[in-house]
C-alpha cells in the first residue's frame, strides 16, 4: 500500500512539475469554459443543461476524454522503460500491480481535478443566485471520473506495450476511439446480436443514461470498474512481460 501511495504521489508531483500537464489543463479548461458559456447562452440560461454538456453531453467532452488520458499516460511506463527508470522501479520492493495502480491513481486524480472545474462553474452560477441541481452535478462528475479512469487504464496498457511514448499515445487514442465509436457503428448493423454485443461496451451510453442523468446505478458503476480493472490487469501483465525480454 505504501508503495502504491509513494508512486501515486511521485507521479502526481511529476505531472504538475512538468509543463505538459499545465498546458493540457489550460487548453482543456479554455475549451470547457468557452463551451459552457456557449451552452448557457443557447439553452436560454439553463444551468443544469449547460453543466450536463460540460460533463458528457457535448462532443468536446468526449474529444478531451479520447485525447487527454493518452497524452498523460504515454510517458508513464514507456518513457520510464526507455530511460531505464522502470527497471530500477521494478527492482524496488513494490509489486508490478502497485506500480501500475499508483500511476493510474495519479492520472485519474488529475482528470478528476479537470472535471471538478464544473464545480467552479456551478459555484459561480450559485453565487449569482442560480444554484444547480447539486445531486445531478455530483452524478455527472462521478461519471466523468469513471470514464476517465477507464481511458487512463487503456492509456497505461498502451504505454506498457511500447517504449516510444508517441506510439503509446497513438495506440491509446485508437483504442479509445474504438470504445467510443464501436457502438455507433454497431448501431448501423441490422444484426441484433451485433448491436447487443457492441451495446455492452457503449461507454457514452453508460455515462449518459446513468451518471449524467443523476443516477448512481450499481450496474453502470460495475461496468466502468470491471473494464478499468481489465485494462489495468493487461497493463500489469505487459509490465511483467518486460522482465522476460
Amino acid at each position: 500500500m505504501s508503495g502504491f501511495l509513494a508512486i501515486a504521489r511521485r507521479e502526481l508531483a511529476g505531472l504538475f512539475v512538468g509543463p505538459l500537464a499545465w498546458a493540457l489543463l489550460s487548453i482543456a479548461l479554455l475549451l470547457q469554459g468557452w463551451l459552457f458559456v456557449l451552452y448557457l447562452r443557447t439553452s436560454g440560461g439553463d444551468v443544469d443543461l449547460s453543466l450536463r454538456f460540460a460533463l458528457g453531453e457535448s462532443w468536446a467532452f468526449w474529444a478531451l476524454l479520447i485525447l487527454v488520458p493518452p497524452l498523460l499516460t504515454m510517458r508513464m511506463i514507456s518513457e520510464e522503460s526507455r530511460t531505464g527508470l522502470l527497471e530500477f522501479l521494478l527492482t524496488a520492493p513494490v509489486s508490478d500491480a502497485a506500480v501500475v495502480a499508483g500511476k493510474f491513481a495519479a492520472a485519474t486524480l488529475f482528470l478528476a481535478l479537470l472535471w471538478a472545474t464544473a464545480l467552479v462553474y456551478a459555484l459561480t452560477t450559485a453565487g449569482l443566485g442560480v444554484p444547480p441541481d447539486w445531486g445531478a452535478l455530483l452524478g455527472g462528475w462521478l461519471g466523468a471520473v469513471a470514464c476517465s479512469a477507464l481511458f487512463v487504464a487503456v492509456g497505461l496498457f498502451a504505454s506498457a506495450l511500447t517504449s516510444t511514448p508517441i506510439v503509446a499515445a497513438f495506440a491509446a487514442v485508437i483504442l479509445n476511439l474504438v470504445f467510443v465509436t464501436a457502438p455507433l457503428l454497431g448501431g448501423l448493423s441490422d444484426q441484433p446480436a451485433v448491436r447487443r454485443a457492441v451495446a455492452r461496451i457503449d461507454v457514452i451510453d453508460h455515462h449518459k443514461s446513468a451518471f449524467l442523468a443523476g443516477v448512481l446505478d450499481s450496474s453502470y458503476l460495475i461496468f466502468f470498474v470491471a473494464w478499468t480493472l481489465f485494462f489495468l490487469f493487461l497493463a500489469v501483465r505487459a509490465v511483467e512481460a518486460r522482465r522476460w525480454r
Binding site: 479548461l29 479554455l30 470547457q32 469554459g33 468557452w34 459552457f36 458559456v37 448557457l40 447562452r41 436560454g44 440560461g45 439553463d46 444551468v47 443544469d48 472545474t117 467552479v120 462553474y121 459561480t124 452560477t125 449569482l128 442560480v130 444554484p131 444547480p132 441541481d133
Partner: peptide, 22 residues
C-alpha cells in the same frame, strides 16, 4: 434553474470565471 439572459452581467461574470480566470 436559469440565468437571466436579458441581463448581460451574470453571463459576463460566468464568462470571466470560466474562460479567463480558470
Amino acid at each position: 434553474r436559469r440565468l437571466d439572459l436579458a441581463d448581460p452581467a451574470p453571463v459576463a461574470r460566468v464568462h470571466t470565471v470560466a474562460v479567463v480566470l480558470l
